[in-house]
Design a binder for these strands. Structure first.
Lengths: 197, 197, 197, 197
DNA sequence: GATGAATGAGGATTCATTCAT
DNA sequence: GATGAATGAATCCTCATTCAT
């Protein structure tokens, strides 16, 4: 049976939403929420100025949607890493490689921006807050503790260790933004040193 | 001898400039150049909206002034560290502590913002460029090489090592922004691990 | 054939540009560049405050555009007059009538304002300079000399004569501004006396 | 008897008023009321920014004062010319020379500006109106009529003739503003042609 | 659905005026 | 009286959002 007219429209609808989100993610990640003009997103998505408003009520809503999804992705990645075979060190190493992978750069930068900037809408802050305090740390901490028990990770407060680890990743990604193109994922081992003995 | 009238006026002048710069540094560091409204700086400095313009031609000029000074401070800190007694490791350790010190937080964040953001005026970029490419690396690299020769630092391209080190500091400072108040300078040793064997 | 969509948009574009230029010319001619608020132009053109900025980058650019066009028109009029049949006196007489004609009033006043005022942007001054020194005088002077040779014009330095003539026109136009509506073009002959024997 | 303290103060007072008025006249004549900043007047008068406000309530009041005085001077000159010996032509000739004299340039330009511009306060317009409609023409017209009767002036509506005459003077003064320094008073005779047979 | 023209609220900047010294 | 620092209303301009086509 041929797809109904309605289904076709829905497909256009979804395609547009993805198109806009993709463009917005890239520009927001580079320029922050205030530094980004809706016209930039439209240009990046190769659509007209007004079209985004058919799919997103406002710039703010678009931003929040992206934050939400980025946090969900990050969360999924954190959950996934624990299913992986290997020692905690190998697991964290894989996670790090994934984060540093080109395709995950923008969501990570977006989260970083939303975490740090005072410009973002309160609701975005809440989403970050929600995920950050409840989920990921709860998930990674056991890994760190296990790593310490196995003698692979260095001693000390595992929360502090995790915090340092996140800082390194963050710092590296931000530097990356400047040295676009260069790929640091091969140097993951240098980063691993910070948590290992 | 009582200060002359002119001296008194100059003192007011200087006091105001410092007052405005201090307020602006704080707000710019938190919100970036676009996210900062002149009214915010005025509020932070507890002056009227128009007064900043007596001392700085524009928001842009104010921003550039702060970048310039922050870079000079950073440069001075980098130069200073080499005069210190002790091994390269001890020197870098001291530098790190200084950078992470509460009082140096805003200049560092400002530089970070100006380095990464696409919104800053070209002249600010130039200043960063000028200092970044000419000065600090030229200065710190010998320290790293010496550290490697002494067997304290880990092997590999010293530029890459330095880059990682800077990333870590950056990341930590940005996380700090969120955990305002907490003082990480005592945990410098964790950071040192990234460059040591 | 029906006009394509693109053509229609272009027509709106051109129509708006004309609408804004017409309104701006009128207000600028009356109030000068500083005395004119963009809101006045918007009101005169019956559009919103922001719309002018779609078509002209700034008040200054709008002003310069108008000056440029006014000078080009004036230049064309000066060139045209020499093609006309008749004696130099008759030619100048026609030129005078054209200048004093209602429809040419605003461009002339605008030029007058830009020539005299210290407030106009340097680029506007340059345009005036360019045309004034290179073109029109070079063009009218031969006419004056010929008029003198024919014994129609009074003796003396033709540049000085031309200068007086221009002064009279200028003065009359400015007075006209106050006696809006009254039409002096019929009294051109009184003006002619200043250059004739 | 030595002047009392109060008298001395009054003298300072008057001196300041003259100083400010002189400076203001010059700047207003060149730049119009909107184009003139109070700081320019202060600079021209070599006094501080705030001092003018001790002697004039506002920029507007200062401007109106100057217009008032300029109109009174012009009026006096018009009255005076009729007391002079000689034919109407000689009288008008003398008047013209006086107007074109360097020292009377600024008041005349000020009046011209106030007459033509829409920027000036209504009260200034009223003053102009008052003098223009009531006085000077009432005064000069008889002179023109007498000149016509004597066969010196050309025929036609004397009001129209006067209007032309004023236009020429105005135009010349405005051109003068651009060719500062050059002195046209010697060429008065060219101007006279416009009213003579 | 898609376009891009149009609107207008908001932010940077200027400058007349006030005020502390 | 004199100074010039300080204020804030008013103006230029930008850009998120709406709307006619």
């Amino acid at each position: 049976m041929a797809p109904s007219n309605e289904q076709k429209l829905d497909q256009i609808h979804l395609k547009r939403i993805e198109q806009i989100k993709k463009a917005a993610l890239k520009v927001f990640a580079h320029r922050g929420i205030i530094g980004t003009k809706m016209s930039m997103i439209a240009a990046e998505a190769e659509i007209s100025q007004g079209l985004s408003y058919r799919y997103f009520k406002s710039k703010e809503e678009l931003f929040i949607t992206l934050i939400q999804e980025a946090m969900e992705e990050a969360n999924a990645a954190f959950q996934h890493v624990q299913q992986l075979p290997g020692t905690p060190l190998e697991q964290i190493r894989t996670l790090t490689q994934n984060i540093l992978d080109e395709s995950n750069k923008y969501p990570f930068l977006l989260i970083q921006h939303a975490s740090v900037s005072d410009e973002v809408p309160p609701k975005a802050k809440q989403i970050i807050e929600h995920f950050s305090t409840n989920v990921p740390i709860e998930q990674l901490i056991p890994l760190f503790i296990k790593g310490q028990q196995l003698g692979q990770f260095c001693e000390g407060d595992p929360y502090k260790l995790l915090f340092c680890y996140m800082s390194v990743i963050t710092g590296l990604m931000l530097q990356e933004k400047q040295t676009e193109g260069k790929n640091w994922s091969e140097d993951v081992d240098i980063l691993m040193k910070i948590i290992t003995k």
